[in-house]
Amino acid sequence: MKIRSVLVPILAVGALALFYGGPGYAADTSGHGSVYTREALSGGKKALLAERESEEGERGEGGGGGGGENERFSAVESPLYKKECSSCHFLYQAGFLPAHSWTMLLNTSDKHFGEDLALDDKTKTDLLAYLTANSAEKSDTEWSVKIMRSIGSSTPGRITKIPYIESKHRKIRRDVFKRPSIKSFSNCGACHTKGAGGNFEERTVVIPK
């Protein structure tokens, strides 16, 4: 009886620790553990509850630090990059990919995920200059640092396939991304309400219905 009353709380604490300290978060002490926020839950978005695996015992607000000097990306400051790339998709900050990925993407811009971007040589050169000057390995933003750590020696072409990015979104059912209001996992701005400005902190996430 006595042993049992001691054991139960220990097991419970252990289970909780396992749950929240799970594989994807093992190296993540930044406080950006899960992609859901309390804000995302408020305002009648109770349906979100069903999509969450669990939120109890969530970290405290705030968080920060943990790998890089700067907590957030900066907004994209290249009018050319904005003009050429943001009509079709979210304007991913250069710090999402290493220089060798940007180079690969620009070199294959005639087959960009099935599309010919019709970029002339000068535009390509100028885009590449901007993107490689601000790429992940040159950024001290903690997300860039973690992205670089997670890709190893690979040359990712899809930001959505970067292990760190995937791990951050693993609690979201795939069909959530298919909603008309979101359409794809690559549409960062649909949920990251401050993403265009470079802020991907969990507390700024609102998942549309």
Binding site: C88, H89, F90, S184
Partner: peptide, 9 residues
């Protein structure tokens, strides 16, 4: 409109 990946046009 919307692009295939969801950006407003």
């Amino acid at each position: 409109g919307k692009t295939p990946v969801g950006k407003t046009i």
